[in-house]
């Protein structure tokens, strides 16, 4: 187990390093933040001063060297836009995204697993066909469109829910609902497929011959066996949510990592972009580790 952790940590560290190099130089190709932050009538001296202050005058490689050296002291640099340490800005936004992702995924997992399992038990039945149709629509619906339509209906026409921002429980409902649809559709399909094949297993026949009731056959005997592929897909979907749902967060004015990224890219707030990438990478690393632990827990035949 600890060997697995070390292996994963080493490989992840290398890919993270590659990512940092790539993002560091690519983001600087977008241009100089000075022209965005200073007023149009700023003097050359003011511009020079700004560049000097943020270390933008050094040669690119030297800037990178400084960045890496600071990073080893866990100094992620300042956010130009917020005039605060970049890491603080990112962690604040990540907190919001994290809550959103956890709540959405919990809901997705529960609904997809229960409905998918029941659908699989009677393949081709009315319930199965209804659930399959709904999940197919869900898996293929564009979320930006659903978000806008949902705002029009629930916020503007009926006026039940706020259009954007945070502050009350009501503010969470629409973002969660919109983010829910696609992973729900996708994971339900995986649960259903995996359950159909697991229900055809020989050990299900044994359970029936023992006189086990249908509900435990589905949820005790079969589900645990069918969960391995499901967990893999759930991990992918959760990773996508942790990365920040850029479109949905932007539409709902939700102060998460996705929105922060977009804003920082548009304003060339380089340090924030890099810090955001590192924080989400760490979150995804931890989540993958949790998935491996879940595998171990679910299937006694797996040993790392």
């Amino acid at each position: 187990m600890s060997r697995l952790f070390r292996q994963r940590a080493v490989t992840s560290l290398f890919s993270l390093l590659g990512l940092i190099v790539l993002v560091f130089f690519l983001s600087r190709l977008t241009g100089d933040p000075t022209s965005l932050f200073l007023p149009i009538d700023a003097t050359d001296a003011m511009r020079e001063n700004f560049r000097e202050l943020h270390g933008l005058n050094d040669p690119l490689l030297l800037q990178f060297w400084h960045y890496i050296v600071d990073l080893t002291h866990l100094d992620f640099g300042e956010s130009i836009r917020k005039a605060r340490p970049a890491i603080d800005v990112v962690i604040e936004a990540f907190g919001w995204t994290f809550q959103l992702a956890i709540m959405t995924m919990a809901l997705v997992a529960f609904c997809a697993i229960v409905l998918g399992s029941i659908a699989a038990f009677r393949v081709g039945g009315k319930f199965d066909r209804l659930v399959s149709l709904v999940s197919l629509i869900g898996a293929s619906a564009p979320d930006f469109w659903i978000a806008i339509v949902a705002i029009v209906i629930f916020s503007i026409n009926i006026g039940w829910l706020p259009t954007s921002g945070t502050g009350s429980i009501a503010h969470w409902i629409l973002p969660i609902a919109v983010l829910f649809i696609r992973p729900f559709g996708l994971i339900l399909q995986v649960v259903r497929g995996s359950m159909i094949s697991a229900l055809g297993s020989a050990y299900v026949k044994t359970a029936k011959a023992k006189g086990v009731k249908n509900t435990p056959i589905i949820f005790v005997h079969t589900l645990r066996n069918a969960m391995l592929p499901v967990i893999t897909v759930m991990g992918d979907q959760a990773a996508a949510l942790l990365n920040g749902a850029v479109v949905v967060e932007t539409i709902f004015g939700f102060p998460g990592v996705g929105k922060l990224m977009i804003d920082s890219i548009l304003q060339r707030d380089f340090n924030v972009i890099l810090a955001a990438i590192m924080v989400t990478a760490l979150a995804i690393f931890i989540m993958n580790l949790l998935i491996d632990v879940a595998y171990l827990f679910l299937d006694p035949r797996i040993r790392y």
Partner: peptide, 15 residues
């Protein structure tokens, strides 16, 4: 009435 099968590995629940 009870039943046992061929290939007990696949007829026992692996988990």
């Amino acid at each position: 009435i009870a039943m046992i099968f061929q290939d007990p590995l696949s007829h026992l629940n692996p988990v």
